[in-house]
Simulated assay, not measured.
Amino acid sequence: MRKLVFVLICFCLIPFQSCDDGDIITIELDFGDTFESCGDKNLVLFKTKDDPSESLSLKLTKVTLDDLLQVDENGIFEMTYSVNTTNPFNYRTYSNTNLPSDLFCSDIPNSEVIITQDLQSLGGSADVKTVLTEDDNDGIPAILEDINNNGDLEDDDTDGDTIPNYIDADDDGDNILTKDEHPDINGDGDISDAQDTDGDGTPDYLDTDDDGDGTLTRDEEKEPQDENPANDITNSEIGPDYLNPEVKDVLPATAYRSHIILKTYVVSLILRDIDIQILAADVYDFGTLELSSEREGNPVFN
Rank of each mutant, 00 (worst) to 15 (best):
P240M: 03
Y242H: 14
E246M: 11
P224Y: 05
L206W: 13
T208N: 14
R257Q: 13
Y256K: 06
T208G: 10
D226H: 04
A253C: 09
T202G: 10
D204S: 01
I260F: 10
K248P: 02
T215H: 12
P252K: 13
N235Q: 05
R218T: 03
S258I: 10
D241N: 14
G201R: 09
G201Q: 13
E223M: 12
L216Y: 03
Q225H: 10
Y242E: 02
L206T: 15
E237G: 15
T215Q: 13
D213L: 07
E221T: 04
P229K: 02
T254Q: 11
K263M: 02
G212W: 02
Y205A: 00
S258W: 07
D219A: 05
D200C: 14
D232F: 06
E227S: 15
I233T: 10
D200E: 12
D200I: 09
P229C: 02
I238S: 06
V266P: 12
P224F: 01
E237K: 15
N235D: 15
E246V: 06
A255Q: 11
P203V: 08
S268E: 12
L271S: 00
S258N: 12
D210R: 12
P252R: 13
Y242L: 06
V247P: 04
D249Q: 07
N244M: 02
G239H: 08
E220N: 06
T215S: 15
D209V: 04
G212M: 08
L269Y: 00
